[in-house]
Design a protein around this nucleic acid. Structure first.
Lengths: 406, 406
DNA sequence: CTGAAAGCGCTTACAG
DNA sequence: CTGAAAGCGCTTACAG
């Protein structure tokens, strides 16, 4: 345990270290333990740079300041900066130069107030942040959302509810305060009526996932039922498994419901035995299911509703001497990162979270732009892909690399 | 590959599946493959709920609307809603009721313009989002930042630069537009002068990491040099390794510089041989370093500047028949998730990213509140912890669980 | 104790 | 072609 300390090591100390590393030969492309680069020592040289000069540019240069400098009206400046055709080229140039010199930046609150648009979208996460950010899913979503927002010169506001019971408040505040022009909503429970209010309010909103309760809402998802059927059939058809257990997600989430239903449908179609163990998408719930799965002596395949639970269960069972995939073939769901790095690597249904987010955000900007969506185009479905790795038996153990994705 | 389709499975199909799962016995706590819960079938019942009634509450109810309803002035409403003491209790109550009825929500742009505060902070990520969100680090940071922001009733705006060259623009826009009251800056390269401008501009900013170039900037970090020394000494002292290779991060990042310097310092102090291989924090760069490390016949220990590179290198070497930890003891850095789930699990220096973010955000709100920071308190250091797992040899292989953290 | 007025910085329809 | 004026919705200092 390293104690709190602010001692900064001197470059000197390090150079000594360097010296004694001398005698070993250097293999190709291996840099010698040499140039220490910018250490604390170079600090003084850089201190008095351009930075210090432009200190405290008065927190707010306004259009008025620029107008006075150039000797034109405030309106002229406003228009010039928007490249309005009615301002002459020469005037525009002078105005822009002055704006640059003065370090003018549009006050976003004033613009938002006047133009009633915020140039920002919200990413709403109805659960507590602790709970949700724990999932790599969110990272992929955020990547997709910010990429598209950037393209549209919009900011992204992250909105998590402080606690479960105040979910509605979060929705309302953010969206109706005018601080964002629309929202992407993710990870909402089926029972969450905040979403319904949002959609009913007529604000531009795109949902991530499938929401059968809100058939008119614009949403982007995958076909979880079909995907789960494919996963299940893979264990049955490619690996001849005959008694399957399904580890569910929290059943107040549509994806968990759909994945369970797909599992049951496929199992029934092929006449294999089924067990259901309820989990909550966490690795812990997967581990907790381990003993229950052990007790199910005849089970030879596990379909988990996500990779984290698959991992939790698998780790428990491996620790108890069960072999994966020989004794128990395992397939997960998501492919958000974990499944690729475990041993055995976990076969899974790849959910294109980033692409879903990208499409959802594109659609959101369409809505903000005034686009209307036909009823039969409200929900978009992204394709899912089976990634066969070691845990189902497709890929031999020992080989290090899995079928990489994402 | 599942094709795009919006077919919704009928509950009927699923119920059939259910039937055929009957005969197996149910172990304890294992739910029978029974109640299907809310499927697509229940959709119609819920459709005509309260939701449909409260449609399109005119996008903007203003103070004026509330004032007219109650028969008081706009100012009275504004003050009542702020619980200003000069408004009588009875009037306050009537105003609040009317505001609720009308669904009044403060227009944040107007408030921001008037009060010149946005009740929002920015989390600035100077790199492209693709690059950065790939790291679990960011997830932990975001968790910490949003938690504290929530406590302060502030929004979090994520700001990533669209591309490397426009980094400065992103800084300026966000911060000087008045849309946020301050910023947390993370992952900045040493050479990034956007930070310097930010700090020089006098805006409330807290940096995540150590910035020797900006000694006066408020920042929260760890002592990377010391932490890396501890990691290195662990391989030397606890495991008797005598020839170590260090896999560096990108050397334009201070943490990479510090970790390398700590490695060299510790190695020198104990008189063990050293090699340096330059990486970039990516798993790929770790894998690419694999062959170089193989070429270093006598090396018996690897200190990687992060876990991803440790994993990349380890996986390559294991694939080539080298044993970890027997032939090569490995220790990584970060403990953001990966190191715990691999086989062997990776011993590492735990970086408390979430706690760093929490503290940084607390300090940011202090600054926004007008707090002044003494020069010797500008930089805060969080403790780091060595997590000993399998890859160094501390924990036997076979046992499933690693020393969990975070 | 309460109302009317000024003004935050911007944009845009209206005059000249 | 350009300037002055109105007004977005709010807060707060100023009158009554």
């Amino acid at each position: 345990m390293l104690q709190r300390s602010s001692s900064v090591p001197t470059t000197h100390e390090v150079r000594r270290a360097e010296g004694s590393a001398g005698t070993l030969e250097q293999p190709q492309r291996t840099t010698p333990a040499e140039p220490l680069g910018r250490g604390a020592g170079t600090l003084e040289q850089t201190k008095g740079s351009a930075v210090t000069e432009r200190r405290k540019v008065a927190a707010n240069t306004t259009l008025r300041d620029v107008a006075e400098r150039v000797g034109v009206s405030v309106s002229a400046v406003s228009m010039a900066l928007q490249d309005h055709p009615r301002i002459g080229d020469d005037t525009k140039r002078r105005i822009r130069e002055a704006a640059d010199e003065l370090g003018y930046v549009t006050n976003s609150a004033a613009r938002a107030l006047r133009a009633s648009k915020a140039d920002a979208i919200a990413l709403i996460v109805p659960n507590t942040s602790q709970h949700v950010f724990g999932h790599a899913y969110f990272m992929h979503v955020l990547t997709g959302v910010t990429a598209v927002a950037n393209r549209n010169d919009a900011q992204v506001v992250i909105s998590t509810s402080p606690d479960e019971s105040h979910g509605k408040v979060a929705y309302d505040r953010v969206l109706r305060s005018g601080s964002v022009d629309g929202a992407i909503v993710t990870s909402a429970a089926v029972t969450d009526d905040g979403i319904q209010r949002l959609v009913a309010d007529g604000l531009p909103v795109v949902l991530l996932g499938r929401f059968p309760y809100l058939p008119d809402a614009v949403s982007v998802g995958i076909d979880d039922v079909r995907a789960s059927e494919l996963a299940t059939e893979h264990l049955i058809q490619a690996h001849g498994r005959r008694a399957l257990v399904h580890l569910t997600g929290p059943l107040d989430h549509q994806s968990a419901i759909d994945r369970r239903d797909g599992f049951l449908a496929a199992a029934a179609r092929h006449g294999v035995g089924t067990y259901i163990v309820e989990g909550d998408f966490s690795e812990e719930s997967g581990a907790a299911a381990g003993p229950q799965i052990e007790a199910l002596g005849d089970v030879d395949g596990l379909v988990a509703a996500n990779d984290e639970m698959a991992f939790g269960a698998m780790r428990h069972l491996l620790g108890r001497g069960r072999r994966v995939p020989e004794d128990l073939a395992v397939i997960g769901f998501d492919d958000f990162g974990l499944s690729r790095v475990t041993t055995p690597s976990i076969s899974t249904m790849h959910v294109p979270a980033e692409r879903m987010a990208t499409q959802a955000t594109d659609r959101l900007f369409d809505l903000i732009g005034g686009a209307r969506v036909a009823a039969d185009e409200a929900h978009t479905v992204q394709p899912v892909e089976l990634i066969a790795r070691q845990s189902c038996g497709c890929e031999p153990m020992g080989r290090a690399q899995g079928g990489d994705k994402q």
